[in-house]
């Protein structure tokens, strides 16, 4: 009797969330694979084309391969900056420097602003009109001609400082937490042995926060693979071949060119890349894990 009541309780509590999740996340995710094997304009009947969409996106001269390149660029170029700055800031704050709390609170600020707002803010910073903060600064230094930082050919480079600006704080907080978790005694022992700050960082801090560092890299790579907002907004909704990321290409294939199968094939590739990146880093994490 009691057991029946409990089963009913479990069903009423788990049923609704599971149903909602299955209908709005799992079902469409599974359907994506089916869609990617068809040619469909979104209205008429769909025709089965097997792997033709995948052959098309992976063929040389397709727009998809450069788009992956742009995603990788937007992952790794700002990523190196973000990781090194975040590690440096976290380590400095961890050493109880003066003003550490201020730095921690302030550096996280840009992380709570939406991608669209960050993009617009940087459009204004890069503006070639008199408003542009950066061109204004260049003018003060004697540079007369304003530089159009956000034109298609330069846009990806222009996004690099923006990504570092908006992304570093999160990773700093993440790494700082990991550093605070390392027992103090290790550092005391190292100091007795006369190890310098740099040596301590390399041989104590870094190995003992390896798990969290890898987690950070996964976040960074997955975020880079999904990149959408800034490119879409800064290109006024019509990115060009030299700026398309996988997501913006997918969006424009489906919602601007009505090529649903092709667009969905891109999203499937994106999913597989996310999966591969996560699996690779989990393996790396397991192998290198240090117990303490």
């Amino acid at each position: 009797m009691k057991n029946r009541g409990q089963n009913l309780f479990i069903a009423t509590f788990l049923g609704p969330p599971l149903l909602l999740y299955a209908v709005f996340v799992l079902m469409p995710a599974v359907n994506a694979f089916r869609y990617s094997l068809t040619r469909w304009d979104g209205l008429g009947p769909a025709s089965w084309v097997g792997l033709a969409n995948f052959r098309a996106i992976l063929a040389s001269g397709s727009e998809f391969l450069p788009a992956i390149g742009h995603n990788l660029f937007l992952t790794f170029v700002p990523g190196v900056g973000i990781l090194s700055l975040a590690l440096f800031f976290a380590y400095s704050i961890h050493q109880r420097i003066r003003g550490g709390r201020l730095y921690r609170v302030a550096f996280f600020f840009p992380n709570v602003i939406s991608g669209v707002a960050v993009a617009l803010l940087w459009v204004l910073i890069y503006s070639t009109s008199d408003v542009g903060l950066l061109n204004g600064l260049l003018k003060l230094m004697g540079h007369t001609q304003p530089i159009p930082f956000t034109e298609s050919g330069r846009l990806l480079w222009a996004i690099v400082p923006m990504s570092i600006w908006s992304g570093t704080g999160f990773f700093m907080v993440l790494f700082l937490a990991a550093m605070e978790n390392i027992p103090e005694t290790y550092y005391e022992a190292a100091k007795l042995d006369g190890a310098s700050s740099a040596v301590q960082f390399r041989s104590i801090t870094l190995p003992l926060m390896w798990d969290v560092l890898t987690t950070g890299i996964v976040f960074l790579v997955v975020g880079g693979l999904k990149f959408f907002d800034a490119v879409y907004v800064m290109e006024n909704g019509r990115p060009s071949g030299s700026t398309h990321t996988m997501s913006t290409l997918m969006y424009s294939k489906v919602f601007q060119e009505y090529n649903v199968g092709y667009g969905t094939a891109i999203s499937v590739m994106l999913f597989l890349l996310v999966l591969a990146a996560t699996a690779a880093s989990l393996r790396l994490m397991r192998r290198e894990r240090l117990e303490y």
Binding site: P28, L225, S247, V254, F271, V274
Partner: peptide
């Protein structure tokens, strides 16, 4: 209860599903 691990696993899968994968089928669904 029976199926607990399966249900937990299904939710766990969601951590790996990018919104881009769900977007298009959901639109037509």
């Amino acid at each position: 209860f029976r199926g607990r691990n399966a249900a937990y696993f299904l939710f766990l899968c969601g951590l790996l599903i990018p919104m881009q994968l769900v977007l298009i089928p959901l639109f037509f669904q």
